[in-house]
Design a protein around this nucleic acid. Structure first.
Lengths: 398, 398
DNA sequence: TACTTAATTCAAATAACTTGAATAAACATT
DNA sequence: AATGTTTATTCAAGTTATTTGAATTAAGTA
């Protein structure tokens, strides 16, 4: 996904303006409703600069005035907030057997979703389907294409698996060596961001989920395997070669279950959709879909409880690793698991004592469930687009 | 070390200039000697903008012209490189029983070092000693205080241990709740950056060590415990509360050795200075200092070899974790261990197969030894100062 | 020797932010 | 109820650092 070495580039008036627009939008996002003077103070800009930017954003429709702040001295400050209907973004999740699409308004509310089964996920077949899907989403939401901020394309990682000595084949082998961003830019004629599912999911929680006001947190994504997305200082981590977050293949039990990657005792052999399916199949129970898991949990199925306990043990170890490495504000769980199973996993965790996260006076939990359900990845795709226009590229902290 | 929530701030002409200076300096650092036109092309700036900045940098003495590039068509391009003698930075490492000081010129060469044993490391006693040490360094290097870019203060983490439920007391308890940056700014009247040892060490490898041309890599720091510093896209990771990188307390053996943090089987109970001291003491061998380790290794001492094998096993697991999480360009080992012991550890690693780093066509090793020896932390302190003036705050790529 | 290529210089032009003075409107005080 | 204080807002320059464009310089190439 990333390969050519780039270099940080300089700023000029135009790029500075772009940055400042994002700084302002990010502040409004996190603090709405808010006024120009407050933004100016918080963002280190003059009132006039903010005023000009707000005026432009209001003209474009991204922000709307919502009355005046009273109750304090001084001239009442005009308050602004996001205009959720002014623009929208689309996320597309590409899986081996399905296409999933989510449309979000500017506030991050999901206003349309669609799932399409796919027999053949090769680029030739899938790309036209994605185009049709995007057209349907725009039509269904009764928006104009001009309001479309962009499309986020989400695929499971890792990328470049073909070059890895022992890693299994890629989950979508036909897509190896394809410049996803370029291909979809050509097909959809709009801005494209491509990412893996876990990172997209993390961004979705920051744009409109439980991590809305957090700048540094981890997201554990339960998919076919197990993925990790990390946001630090408001920016998603990518790794040197675009393969950040392959946490499924860290070893939590030396000499444990043989994994397809060549290791033994990989975390995702204990915690993932494939893991629970295999575990239950060995006990003669077929897990066809998420609903069947939900039902088994409602019935307190002993085999499932057993799996949850094993999974929770390994997850607890992973949490210790993440907390001590990243020192995050929290760790969010999400992805393909039903909410009830995720909650059961969380309740059975045995969080390690020896962790920098084990503080007195914590205000938020060390672990929490994400808010976007099992459309997370597609919603994350659309969230990445919204995230980009509200995320400053400068990282100047006084 | 970090607590109050800040907000990204907007840019203006002045901040833009600061950023562009750093972009130019960073490019020269990594590509010297180089010319104005080349910088302009690579940094996305106009020739004129670069020309003005280079002129200023040359006037200030930070850059020097070094002839012209010939052999290609067109007017010969004037080449510039760093002027190592134009400015300098000082790093101070604060340990419970010692103060260590390193002075670097602008290129990152160490031009002075000093070690001072300390009976009392409390702020009242240590701060005056630090001031004297800085004065001695300036005098010894025959520089003027005006050329001092700043002082980097390095301490072992984690910070805020007093608030942690089960973590041991801080290594320097008297320094808890002290605003280190503010205290030393007042005492030394120059810019101060405070960091933990592992992060400082990572930065030192990027400024003038084996990671000079890398933007994303990990550094494992062998100290009393075990620390982790990570650079991603040229920026050091800090965590939400300044405690990024406490990798010593991740569990690599469930139910293993009891650790002072409350966990069992923490990595640093197997890999650290304290670990090897304890292991050898149990076999009746006293490890007084680094030299005694070196000698034992030369003699192929069986107990030490045994420790190295155990340590290498646990380290290999940690490397799998780091590679699969961060997808770094490489992992650097450094810190308090003698070079020969570090090399022995590296040679006995069993790098995991199932890792995104296990690629064909790798050009650099998955693990390498750092270049700055056991003054790493102090050198890292000074490196942070140099790093700051050559590291763009904007992260505009493409 | 003439041509091509690329770096450099000089002189405007431009974009975006900052500054400062004047005005508006609410709450607080007497 | 009148006056004063505080804060937001507007308007009109002023400032900074960048970009643009034309002219110049100097090396390699045909």
């Amino acid at each position: 996904m990333k390969d050519i070495k780039t270099h940080p580039i300089g700023g000029n008036a135009g790029r500075n303006r772009t940055h400042n627009r994002r700084v302002v939008l990010d502040y409004v996002r996190a603090n709405e409703p808010t006024g120009r003077a407050e933004i100016a103070k918080s963002c280190g800009l003059s009132f006039q600069a903010v005023s000009n930017i707000i005026e432009a954003l209001e003209t474009e429709g991204l922000l709307v005035a919502v009355g005046h702040k009273t109750g304090v001295r001084g001239q009442p400050a005009a308050q602004y907030k996001f205009n959720p209907e002014s623009a929208f973004a689309i996320g597309v999740e590409l899986r081996p057997n399905a296409l999933i699409c989510a449309t979000l308004n500017l506030k991050g509310d999901c206003i349309y979703r669609e799932r399409l089964s796919l027999e053949d996920s090769s680029p030739d077949k899938a790309i036209p389907q994605v185009c049709d899907m995007v057209d349907r989403a725009i039509a269904h939401c009764k928006r104009s294409r001009a309001q479309l901020l962009g499309v986020g394309v989400v695929m499971p990682g890792p990328f470049g698996a073909a070059d890895m000595a022992d890693m299994n084949a890629a989950i979508l082998p036909d897509w190896e060596n394809i410049d996803i961003k370029a291909v979809f830019e050509a097909a959809l004629e709009c801005p494209i961001i491509a990412e893996n599912d876990a990172t997209a999911a993390a961004i979705s929680e920051r744009v409109a989920g439980v991590a809305r006001s957090m700048d540094t947190f981890c997201f554990l994504y339960f998919g076919a395997g197990l993925g990790l997305g990390v946001i630090t200082n408001g920016h998603a981590q990518n790794g040197a070669y675009g393969n950040f977050g392959e946490i499924g293949h860290i070893v939590t039990q030396v000499g444990g279950t043989k994994c397809s990657c060549g290791n033994e005792g990989c975390l995702e052999t204990y915690v993932s959709r494939l893991s629970v399916q295999k575990f239950m199949a060995n006990r003669g129970i077929d897990i066809a879909d998420a609903d069947s898991l939900t039902k088994l949990l409602e019935q307190n199925n002993p085999a499932l409880i057993e799996w949850i306990d094993i999974a929770a043990t390994h997850l607890s170890q992973a949490i210790g690793i993440l907390e001590n490495i990243f020192d995050p504000e929290t760790i969010v769980f999400g992805g393909a698991m039903p909410d009830s199973v995720t909650d059961a996993l969380i309740s059975r965790l045995q969080l390690p004592r020896g962790s920098v996260a084990n503080r007195k006076n914590r205000k938020i939990n060390r672990v929490m469930r994400g808010s976007s359900g099992h459309y997370t990845a597609a919603i994350g795709g659309a969230s990445m687009i919204i995230h980009q226009i509200t995320t400053p590229s400068m990282a100047l902290y006084s």
